[in-house]
Amino acid sequence: MTTLPPFTRQIAHKYLVEKHLSPQDETEFKEQLYRIWFELYARRGSSRPDSSGFEHVFVGETRGGRTVIGFHNWIQLYLQEKLGHIDYKGYSVTANSPQPDEYKHILALQFSWKNGIKPKGSIFIGVSPEFEFALYTLCFLTSPNERVKVQFSFYDVEIVCHHYNQKHIGTTYPVLLRYRNPQ
Score class of each variant (00 low, 15 high):
42 A>T: 10
138 L>F: 07
103 Y>E: 09
67 T>F: 01
176 L>K: 06
152 F>A: 12
73 N>E: 10
124 F>I: 08
119 P>M: 05
20 H>D: 13
91 Y>F: 10
118 K>I: 03
93 V>K: 13
52 S>Q: 04
3 T>D: 01
81 E>T: 08
22 S>W: 00
81 E>Q: 14
75 I>S: 05
170 G>F: 05
86 I>P: 15
146 E>H: 04
108 A>N: 04
182 P>K: 03
31 E>F: 00
68 V>A: 12
15 Y>G: 01
106 I>M: 06
102 E>P: 01
95 A>D: 12
152 F>E: 13
133 F>W: 07
28 E>H: 12
86 I>T: 08
14 K>C: 07
38 F>L: 09
36 I>F: 08
119 P>F: 13
114 K>G: 03
167 K>R: 14
95 A>S: 15
104 K>C: 03
52 S>D: 06
163 H>Q: 06
128 S>N: 10
157 V>L: 15
90 G>E: 14
138 L>V: 07
120 K>W: 05
33 L>Y: 00
12 A>I: 01
30 K>D: 09
18 E>T: 10
62 T>E: 03
91 Y>C: 13
130 E>A: 11
47 S>N: 13
131 F>K: 09
153 S>R: 06
63 R>K: 13
16 L>E: 03
178 R>Q: 11
29 F>M: 13
46 S>W: 04
144 P>M: 12
19 K>E: 09
96 N>G: 12
51 S>C: 14
160 V>N: 08
49 P>G: 03
36 I>N: 04
102 E>T: 09
33 L>K: 00
119 P>G: 07
129 P>E: 14
74 W>K: 07
37 W>P: 04
83 L>Y: 06
116 G>D: 11
105 H>G: 06
126 G>W: 02
45 G>E: 09
1 M>Y: 05
58 F>Y: 03
35 R>A: 03
177 L>R: 09
62 T>R: 07
153 S>F: 03
20 H>Y: 01
123 I>Y: 01
20 H>I: 05
13 H>L: 01
18 E>R: 13
124 F>Q: 07
102 E>Y: 06
10 Q>Y: 02
162 H>Y: 10
86 I>A: 15
139 C>D: 09
75 I>G: 02
81 E>R: 09
98 P>C: 14
2 T>Y: 00
77 L>R: 12
52 S>A: 04
91 Y>P: 02
178 R>A: 15
25 D>K: 12
173 Y>P: 13
59 V>I: 07
25 D>A: 05
83 L>N: 11
182 P>Q: 11
11 I>T: 12
89 K>W: 01
116 G>I: 09
20 H>A: 11
57 V>H: 01
29 F>T: 09
85 H>P: 00
148 V>M: 11
88 Y>P: 12
25 D>V: 11
70 G>L: 00
78 Y>V: 13
59 V>Q: 04
12 A>R: 07
162 H>F: 09
74 W>Q: 12
170 G>T: 00
121 G>I: 07
48 R>Y: 04
1 M>W: 03
90 G>I: 05
55 E>H: 15
104 K>E: 02
127 V>I: 11
74 W>G: 04
5 P>A: 08
149 K>Y: 07
171 T>M: 07
173 Y>A: 10
89 K>F: 00
84 G>N: 06
58 F>S: 02
106 I>V: 11
57 V>C: 11
5 P>I: 05
106 I>Y: 05
9 R>A: 15
